[in-house]
Design a protein around this nucleic acid. Structure first.
Length: 919
RNA sequence: GCCCUGAUGGCGGAAUUGGUAGACGCGCUGGACUCAAAAUCCAGUGGCCUUUAAAGCCGUGCGGGUUCGAUUCCCGCUUGGGGCACCA
């Protein structure tokens, strides 16, 4: 019987679905294991072979864990809200829900074909009201909470109100954005509206004005991680900085915890580093400068990490968006400052970054250096950011390159503070050297001077130690249709939560999906977009809202009472293995951690980190093929000969190319303009050139997994994607090697079947066969645990070579179990042919037994300095004299052996190379 | 500019903790089977020198170092990929 992968795969995929083989049920008697993939956005293009890479790896791991006796939760769903469906809707008028469900169906059929062991009963879709009810619920919980810095956790807002009523604003140490201070009695006298406005400064989910990334082309604001190099990540449209009132999440309150608990999770160093940079902790000091403008006096606070350089401050700089600009602009400079602010406003984010031109304007006011008493001018410049620190800086041109450039441009003085620093050409930014010109700091090294300066500042009441974080609060509103509506309505202008029992707030039907003519979000088009007669919020939530807690929902997806029941949460706890791309490093993976910590604070979940271990799979790139048309003709020249002609490189569809050889007739039929193409061949064939590029339709290099399943089968696809190289590594898809993997499966099949006979017998395996089997068992286990699937596949191939013609049940049964995570269909089929009734999925992983000894070896005692130190196993061909002579000839350092050491003797036939001592 | 990563045959990639570099697969070459082809099987396959073989020499991006021994550890570069970037 032949290996009929088409029939086998169809048969078992149907059985698995019918029998719900992979259904996960909470079972306290078994240890749990939660394996999760980042759920996909169901795009219209469908899956290409790059997408399943991570899914295959996690599926192997999930199946392996089941074999090891774990109760495995391995769910899948769809991140179904998003821009592409909405833009398609704007163009065609088709409801995004329709597009989305069509795409979801396509994804599902593609996924099913690869034979994943998902528990589809737990599927979630972020756009499903029964799901986003809990996204809205979490938002309301954040709206109803504040962050207590003293306890370092979120608490219900009612407790804040109580504290205000007792002790006013001074009674709490809360994370907030510039809220006014007030007494207890003032609080009690405030109106509802006033109280609401004040609380808004404290809520974890709050409405606040801030400088946001505004993208006019998309008609919406974007979060920082959705902007790349000043362009929108989706669509690549220019982005402007704009002050707007938006819903925001107080992620910044969690900065310290997000940073610290990175140490406790098993993620790659590079990813942790990315998050550390994004969070951006820096230690320094806040310092107060007295400022004077047209006779008025102010105290202005700045942040610096170089308190040691205060003696070199020669000017101050404000961010253009800073509130200080208005206060500190002298009457005489009003016009100049206004003109400058206007010019800054017009620039796109891109221009601000790219144009490194030094610009700025003098405000006409002066600040007093708190240490020297000297007066220095206050300037405004776009190189200072409003969102970081206090939006104002002290400038030390001698030791900061940006301040230096500014000082040079506007002819401001430069005072060097470090001995021997030459600041005639550029600033000296390094934190090393000995202080000079710095009063009481003179003679100290920079490393000593920084804390000494801060101590002094604190002692004299000029400022205090301060840790600053770069991470900003997440902008949470989007002016779009296809997202979760906010469960917020405006009662007398006061943002009011929709009661929990009225959730979810579902999307209204509207006639057009574009923003309104007056620039309002699409939801403003809805006829009756109200709650209880009051207007509802018209913006929707961003993409990361629905993906932030989906891993929790999988634990208890049908629960209508809570996001996740305490029982389910306590059982599944958190994700043990999370597999996905690194592109979410500063988006989803930050927000999810924040979201989880928030729910943890409120006692809804038991773990304060969502993803214990994270593996980032690499991208699979496309391998594009090219033909070379001789300029001005319809003649194509093979790649090896193209240098003798002037040619144009043309992408050719890779389905017309096999092993870089072009299918000439197929090419002529491909497009009308090539119908009468002529070819200049080499060795009778047309050889194409190639390049590794992103897999995309326009480069004709997309490989659909369905096609691979058609020709080779899902098992081959799975095995091949793993065999391609380490999961974490990016690599091009290259069909060349796929035959080798397919051949392996056919050979494997042939251990069981020849043309018509089932070969399996009950003979006793030989020692050599047992050795091959058990080496494989050990290797497969360690490789899977180490996520090294490519070497595991190699191990199978080696074992198969050694087990040729071995059709013994005692060998084949464990072999089938071992193979089942990788190639589940063929394994399931053969498992049943071996007479088993139940799925191989729950068979026990074979035990590794050291069932062999080194053949042809003999044990020698080895002695140094007349004492026997240890014994070694060596090939018989080596005489005892040889061994001892070799050991004696070794240098002393190699001969030392400590008590209790394990010794390995490295033997090249005929001589001892070395002795390795292991502890 | 800063941070993280990687660099090994014609190709994808192996190498447990510093111990015979190139496993496994692809490709290529030769052979078997076949009227022939496909499929399958067997053998060879880093480079140089050599008629061949044996033996030898050189070889893990480059230059140094530590070590009996370095793809592996240290220092300094070159270069591919990714991230951050006026963050004071």
């Amino acid at each position: 019987m032949d290996y009929d992968f088409v029939a086998i795969e169809k048969k078992w995929q149907r059985k698995w679905a019918e029998e719900k083989t992979f259904k996960a049920v909470e079972d306290p008697s078994k240890p749990k294991f939660y394996v999760l993939d980042m759920f996909p956005y169901p795009s219209g293009a469908g899956l290409h072979v790059g997408h399943p890479l991570g899914y295959i790896a996690s599926d192997i791991f999930a199946r392996y864990k089941r074999l090891c006796g774990f109760n495995v939760l391995h769910p899948m769903g769809y991140d179904a809200f998003g821009l592409p469906a909405e833009q398609y809707a704007i163009q065609t008028g088709q409801h995004p829900e329709k597009t989305t469900s069509v795409n979801v169906a396509r994804y599902r059929s593609q996924l099913d074909r690869i034979g994943f062991s998902f528990d589809w009963d737990r599927e979630v879709r972020t756009c499903d009201p029964a799901y986003f009810k809990w996204t809205q619920w979490a938002f309301l919980k954040m709206f109803g909470s504040w962050y207590d810095k003293a306890l370092d956790k979120a608490r219900p807002i009612e407790e804040l109100e109580e504290a205000f009523a007792k002790g006013g604003s001074a009674a709490v140490d809360a994370a907030c954005n510039d809220a006014p201070s007030f007494t207890a009695s003032e609080w009690l006298s405030f109106s509802e509206k006033e109280k609401s406005d004040i609380l808004m400064h404290y809520r974890i989910a709050y409405q606040g004005e801030s400088t946001v990334n505004w993208c006019p082309a998309l008609g919406t604001v974007l979060a920082n991680d959705e902007v790349k190099d000043g362009y929108s990540e989706r669509g690549g449209h220019p982005v402007f900085q704009k002050k707007m009132t938006q819903w925001q999440l107080r992620v910044s309150a969690y900065a310290g915890r997000l940073l610290d608990s990175l140490d406790a999770i098993d993620w790659s160093d590079s990813l942790k580093e990315m998050q550390r940079n994004w969070i951006g902790r820096s230690e320094g000091a806040e310092m107060v400068f007295k400022v004077e403008c047209d006779g008025a006096q102010y105290d202005m606070t700045i942040f610096t990490t170089r308190a040691d350089t205060v003696f070199g401050v020669t000017f101050m700089v404000l961010a253009p968006e800073s509130e200080w600009v208005e206060k500190l602009t002298a009457a005489s400079e009003k016009d100049a400052v206004a003109a400058y602010l206007e010019s800054v406003k017009k620039k796109t984010e891109r221009e601000r970054i790219a144009g490194k031109a030094v610009t700025g304007v003098f405000t006409g006011s002066y600040a007093t250096n708190p240490l020297t008493g000297k007066k220095v001018p206050v300037w405004v410049s776009e190189y200072v950011l409003s969102g970081y620190g206090t939006g104002a800086i002290m400038a030390v041109p001698a030791h900061d390159s940006r301040d230096y450039a500014f000082a040079r441009k506007f002819n401001l003085p430069i005072i060097p503070l470090i001995e021997g620093a030459d600041v005639s050409e550029s600033s000296f930014d390094a934190k090393e050297g000995t202080m000079v010109n710095s009063g009481f700091l003179d003679g100290l090294s920079v490393k000593e001077a920084i804390p000494a300066a801060i101590d002094y500042i604190e002692a004299h009441g000029i400022g205090r130690r301060k840790v600053n974080y770069r991470i900003r609060d997440a902008i949470f509103s989007r002016q779009r249709y296809w997202g979760e509506p906010f469960p917020i309505y405006y009662k007398d202008g006061i943002p009011t939560p929709v009661p929990f029992d009225k959730l979810p707030v579902t999307l209204p039907e509207i006639d057009k999906y574009a923003p309104t003519e007056s620039g309002e979000p699409p939801l403003a088009r809805a006829k009756d977009w109200t709650f209880d007669g009051w207007p509802l919020e018209t913006s929707t939530m961003p993409g990361f809202a629905g993906s932030s807690a989906y891993y929790l929902r999988y634990m208890d997806p049908h629960n209508d009472e809570t996001l996740v029941s305490p029982e389910a949460d306590k059982y599944w706890r958190s994700v043990d293995l999370y597999v996905g791309g690194t592109e979410h490093a500063t988006g989803h993976l930050i927000y999810s951690r924040f979201w989880d910590k928030f729910l943890f604070d409120l006692g809804y979940v038991v773990e304060d980190e969502p993803f214990r271990k994270l593996v980032n799979q690499g991208m699979i790139q496309g391998r594009s093929s090219f033909v070379y048309r001789i300029v001005g003709t319809n003649k194509f020249v093979s790649v090896g000969l193209k240098d003798s002609y002037e040619t144009t490189e043309i992408h050719v569809d890779i389905s017309l190319v096999r092993n870089d050889r072009l299918d000439l007739d197929g090419f002529r039929a491909w497009r009308p303009e090539f119908a009468d193409a002529e070819f200049i061949l080499e060795d009778g064939e047309y050889v194409c050139g190639y390049a590794v590029e992103k897999m995309s339709k326009s480069m004709y290099n997309v490989v659909n997994p369905d096609d691979v399943c058609e020709t080779y089968g899902a098992d081959t696809l799975r095995l091949y994607e793993m065999f391609l190289g380490p999961v974490e590594q990016s690599k091009p898809w290259d069909t060349k090697g796929i035959d080798g993997v397919h051949r392996f499966l056919r050979k494997f099949w042939r251990l069981f079947w020849d043309r018509e006979n089932f070969l399996v017998n009950d003979e006793e395996p030989t020692k050599a066969e047992l050795k091959a089997l058990h080496v494989l068992i050990g290797k497969v286990r360690t490789d899977i645990e180490a996520f090294s699937f490519n070497t595991a596949v190699s191990a199978f191939m080696i074992a198969l070579g050694e087990l040729q013609g071995c059709s013994k049940r005692a060998v084949l049964e464990p072999l089938v179990i071992l193979l089942s995570p990788f190639a589940p269909h063929i394994a399931e089929e053969l498992w049943h042919q071996l007479g088993h009734e139940t799925s191989v999925t729950y068979a026990p992983f074979p035990e590794y037994v050291q069932a062999y000894t080194v053949e042809d070896s003999v044990t020698y005692p080895v002695s140094f300095n007349g004492k026997t130190r240890f014994t070694v196993d060596l090939p018989k061909s080596l005489s005892r004299e040889d061994v001892e002579a070799s050991v004696r000839a070794l240098p002393d350092t190699a001969k030392w052996v400590g008590a209790g050491s394990i010794v390995k003797v490295i033997v090249v036939p005929g001589r001892i190379v070395n002795i390795v001592v292991k502890q």
